[in-house]
Design a protein around this nucleic acid. Structure first.
Length: 496
RNA sequence: GGCCCGUUGGUGAAGCGGUUCAACACACCAGCCUUUCACGCUGGCAUGCAGGGGUUCGAAUCCCCUACGGGUCACCA
């Protein structure tokens, strides 16, 4: 049997990290098993569908590199891959279930149902459908249908036994049939509900494994019932634990304490494999010899993945760890590639553009400067967009001296070191990192100060901070004029 | 509230009845490297595995109860 899995989102907005992680697990499993990974759009909630949502979803997935074998845009033998284009597939099953008495029309209005629900809740009872339309006589039914009374179709759940199924992650699951109400499988506008659409779709598309979020665990008995009713084999299930926010709650799309859309990570300069890598580790971990590693390429993840190593408990999303994973990928990226990826952030940065202009850098020189910057900050970037704040070190006109810097500038050797250094760089025939290094050496010789006593005053003076990238390179990129001006400023203002 | 699911450090997690079982990673702290900084490296960080009962010669690992957390109870998916 060939494995066939699917990710079946509804097109209601951006792809979020939970969906991406579910899709990733499906993808990894399919690839690992040599099976097919299918993208299917469940758009039966016509009122909530957003026009460009599918397009955004697809763009985000393409960026992540989770390509599907069958889907709305690439087609496939089991198409179409949008529920609303599959209406013809659902109808015969609906008719059959009604004809067999396994489903029936329900004429209750939303208002009636709502009232019943509220009444039940007031009495602290579990709200559930009364089943009143189930017992309508043939004649009553026909009369209402002839009178065009709007109706839904409900699935008739009867019996007292248990519904059981196997979950790859949780083991044996069982639910009481009596606890499941007669649920709606077709809405009054003739569109099937999600429950009906997914099961028919999964059945007809010959899906072998349903890997989805834990929020669907309690829906699963309904699906099992439907598979049985239409006489199709029941797929295997794997309900993966939820991704939680830092308060341990299920992510809500309105939750703004956390960046939860893939697009946001794209925009901030995350590398797709870093996102995949981190997401894979949320709720899953490789066993065996790889247990002490954390960085895995997509191919490696495919190789290592298995459903039984998925955790049971929900996982709190930790943005810091994602950032760290991303930084590992940035460090491992070849400079040429990294420059290419980072350049857009500098291109859109007004301050950097101004800096290039003021330093009369254009064309190849500008490219070279960009490259130098990226190289300098490669180990400091956690996100590619960090280049914008990092590069302020060079582009900002007036530097602010922070407390630590001011403290350094109180030291008594500062004035002497600065004076010597200013003189030395004035004498330089070329203002390059290599020459600056020599000048620093010369200052050491002349003043006798070295190490922190030598470098700190200069770094603090030139940048206003005591932390930063390589000093030679920093001084070089700052430009001679700026460095001299700041030395002058410090000599006059801060010291004394 | 009913029904499900879960509970190892701040976070992700390893562990799947017994030779250090409380790995590893993020974060944090300390030190080293670097004539400065960062990267990196090294070390520290749960006397205990939600709590209480069992089972067993022996339990984080099996069973039960309690507590807590989460999911779900729509003509949403």
């Amino acid at each position: 049997m060939t494995v066939r899995v699917r990710f079946a989102p509804s097109p209601t907005g951006h792809l979020h990290i939970g969906g991406a992680r579910t899709a990733l697990f499906n993808y990894l499993f399919a690839k690992k098993m040599g099976g097919s990974y299918i993208l299917r759009i469940e758009d039966t909630d016509t009122s909530r569908n957003k026009a460009d949502a599918e397009e955004k979803l697809i763009r985000a997935f393409r960026w992540l590199g989770l390509d599907w074998d069958e889907g709305p845009d690439v087609g496939g033998k089991y198409g179409p891959y949008r529920s609303m284009e599959r209406l013809n597939s659902y109808q015969p099953y609906l008719d059959k279930l009604v004809a067999e008495g396994k489903a029936y029309p329900c004429f209750c209005t939303k208002e009636e149902l709502e009232a019943e629900r509220e009444a039940a809740q007031q009495k602290a009872q579990t709200p559930r459908y009364s089943g009143k339309c189930r017992h309508l006589s043939k004649e009553e039914r026909q009369a209402k249908i002839d009178a065009n009374v709007p109706h839904t179709i409900r699935f008739a759940v009867s019996g007292n036994d248990e519904i059981t199924f196997q979950d790859h992650i949780r083991g044996d699951m069982s639910f009481q049939r009596a606890d499941i109400e007669d649920f709606v499988i077709c809405k009054s506008d003739g569109v099937p509900t999600y429950h009906f659409a997914v099961t028919i779709d999964d059945a007809l598309m010959e899906i072998t494994h349903v890997i989805r979020g834990e929020e669907h665990l309690s829906n699963t008995p309904k699906h099992v019932l439907l598979f049985e009713a239409i006489g199709y084999p029941i797929p295997e299930f794997a309900h993966i634990p939820l991704i939680l926010n830092e308060n341990g709650k299920k992510l809500s799309k309105r939750d703004e304490t956390i960046l939860q859309f893939i697009e946001q990570y794209h925009d901030l300069g995350y590398l797709p494999d870093a996102v995949n890598n981190y997401l894979a580790l949320l709720g899953w971990s490789p066993g065996g010899e790889y247990i002490e590693e954390e960085i895995f390429s997509l191919d490696k993840l495919v190789e290592l993945f298995s459903l039984d190593r998925i955790n049971k408990a929900g996982a709190i999303f930790n943005q810091e760890k994602l950032m760290w994973v991303n930084s590992q990928y940035i460090k491992a990226t070849e400079l040429d590639k990294l420059v290419e990826l980072t350049k857009p952030y500098l291109d859109e940065d007004a301050e950097y553009q101004l800096y290039l202009k003021q330093n009369e850098l254009s064309g190849e020189q500008a490219e070279e400067r960009t490259r130098e910057l990226v190289a300098l900050f490669q180990t400091a970037m956690y996100q590619l967009s960090d280049i914008q704040s990092l590069s302020k070190l060079f582009t900002v006109k007036e530097t602010k001296y922070d407390d630590e810097a001011n403290q350094v500038l109180q030291q008594e050797q500062v004035s002497e070191v600065l004076a010597s250094f200013a003189k030395k760089i004035e004498e330089l025939r070329a203002y390059t990192p290599a020459e600056i290094k020599k000048a620093l050496k010369a200052v050491q010789k002349e003043t006798g100060f070295k190490g922190k006593q030598l470098f700190m005053p200069i770094r603090a003076t030139a940048t206003g901070q005591v932390h930063g990238p390589d000093l030679n390179q920093t001084l070089y990129l700052l430009g001679k004029e700026k460095v001299l001006a700041r030395i002058d400023h410090v000599q006059k203002q801060v010291v004394s």
